[in-house]
Design a protein around this nucleic acid. Sequence first.
DNA 1: AGGCTGGGCGAAACCGCTTTCGGATTTCGC
DNA 2: GCGAAATCCGAAAGCGGTTTCGCCCAGCCT
Lengths: 366, 366
Amino acid sequence: MTSTKNNGSSRRVKRRRTGININDLAERAGVAPATVSRALNGYTDIAEATRERILGLAVELNYQPSSRARQLARGRVETVAFVLPVNSRNTHDPFLSDFLDALASALSARDHDLLVATVRDDEEEIEVYRRLIAAGKCAGFIVTNSRDNDPRICLLRDLNVPFVVYGRASSDAPYPHLDMDNEAAIAGMVDHLFALGHQRFAYVDLEEEATFARLRRIGFELGVSRNALLDDNVAVVRVPHTSAGGQSAIATLFDGGNSHRPTAVVCPADVVAIGAIQAVSARGYDVGRDVSITGYDGVPLGAYTAPPLTTMSQPTREIGQQLVDILFRVMEGADPAQFDAVMMPTLVRRSSDGSPTLVEAARALP
Amino acid sequence: MTSTKNNGSSRRVKRRRTGININDLAERAGVAPATVSRALNGYTDIAEATRERILGLAVELNYQPSSRARQLARGRVETVAFVLPVNSRNTHDPFLSDFLDALASALSARDHDLLVATVRDDEEEIEVYRRLIAAGKCAGFIVTNSRDNDPRICLLRDLNVPFVVYGRASSDAPYPHLDMDNEAAIAGMVDHLFALGHQRFAYVDLEEEATFARLRRIGFELGVSRNALLDDNVAVVRVPHTSAGGQSAIATLFDGGNSHRPTAVVCPADVVAIGAIQAVSARGYDVGRDVSITGYDGVPLGAYTAPPLTTMSQPTREIGQQLVDILFRVMEGADPAQFDAVMMPTLVRRSSDGSPTLVEAARALP
DNA sequence: AGGCTGGGCGAAACCGCTTTCGGATTTCGC
DNA sequence: GCGAAATCCGAAAGCGGTTTCGCCCAGCCT
């Protein structure tokens, strides 16, 4: 989709003289531009004295080589793109700032820039990727929110563009990625609640295409089976990945037949858990005593709900850094297949979980 | 600070042949590169037939001119930078994704890119600005979180770089900006609570250098005076811009002498209000009946606190769009002094406020 | 002393695109 | 039917860097 950019008029754009350039500097230093380039880029075939003179002059004049020109000449691009989907609300919304910070700092340490593009629907998304690649705007991509058989991953692999994915996407061929152990984390949460004495569980599944949603549900099932929970004591509802979703999950779980009301509600996302806490409290239960509710993510606000939320917390910042590390290895030509790290979130216990001591009292309620 | 980038070795970087370029396309089309350029850029001195042939070929070959080369040749930069401070937690944290989306879309509509850099402390910040400018990495800046006498604004003005500020900074000279009417909004909130019957107010001031913190406090004072509240009935505490800050504000307000416990607590930020709600509830009060608590921002999670938070909501997306609009006007040479729009947030009433009917009951509590 | 080696640097080509300038056709006015 | 204007397009000179190539001039060896 070549953008024609016909701005109506046919007037040509006039050139604007920018600041000082390499020729100016060379002239001032009494050397050839090539020598300035050598000095600035740390090459060795230049006298130390000359280098220092040039470097000094560069600081003095606040000279900074034009990154555009440099990259053009080098035939390299020193930019990494992060395409942020804003349709599927949040996912890492609350961490976005941390995540961006991790990416940007790690990139900046390597003299690279971070290009951020946003995108609403999937078709636009793939189109944006295409355009960014064709226009040579970036050397690689950070991909998040991976779906099963993700078209972006196929595209990037086909075009042989470096990338790294946060999350897994159950593709046939391997690709570089980093993921949380969603499965083990949720299963571990079930273990934890089981150890507290819970028997009747509910899981709030996410209406979300992303792979992590599937993996977390599998983790729940794993926890159910390895703790030998009775089928009758296990309920699963499926709702949108929002606080409102959490509320409606509670509605279906608690307002229907009251036979198998759960004492433990496992939510695969904090925002959902927060909605659930609100809905359960509104029904007169004491969250953390009558009913345990747990989340996943570790959003800051989770510490300030009533009661504060017990959750699985992800090391957002570290994730960002590692992603960049991996991406650079790939850009340097390392075998992409070797990157498949999995990190474990940590259980942060606050007060939304506890032993189901008051189960009967809870049952007796409206 | 010229980055020397001596990567140890002195090996030269090898050039990597990128995809198809304008010469290839020209050859295929049987024309000169200049003609291709004309065709793609919508100039009129080219036969319509030729243009269409070239355009067709471009789509077919998925040709997209190298943005680096194009910008170098044009002497223009089609990138706008957004430097995100991650030290002073949040400010627009919860909206970051919306805000970025607004910026990125508005920029993309004008064929510009969004460069995001993050920065921890103030010195680093000014250094980053310098570097971005000297290296010609961006044509303009979006500045948020403005402080009084903001050094960034001075720098940008001195260097004559286009920029637009979200927020005001009480500088001597005028500069292009857009702001919420913080003052009127908070004053309006006081009016609202006063109309509900509240007499005893508390304001949670922010330990924050940013101008908006000052303006909101002034707004509170305005509300106090125009509703003729008694000095004895007004308290102000100053805390960090976090939920923990909100909690500690409540501690000082409620745990001291119980003589002048407020019935209305005005918070200038939702995160703070959420901490306050939690702390007030924990002390056995019924928020919304015994005590009214209000926020400012309109964070999504505010709808799911217990009770849901009444707040002043900012149109994040629109703000982003307008900022970009203004920035482009400035880049096109419009007089920067003329841009000083002020927008009004809207009151979103949920359930954390109400008439202080139960005041006496509240007083009787512990 | 002369040849060899290699460190230090300049000249020039090039990265991929834009834009000026002017040449070659057409088209048009009279 | 002819000169002038208009139209279309190619050649070439940049944009601001990097990198190759090779020159020049020590310094070293024999």
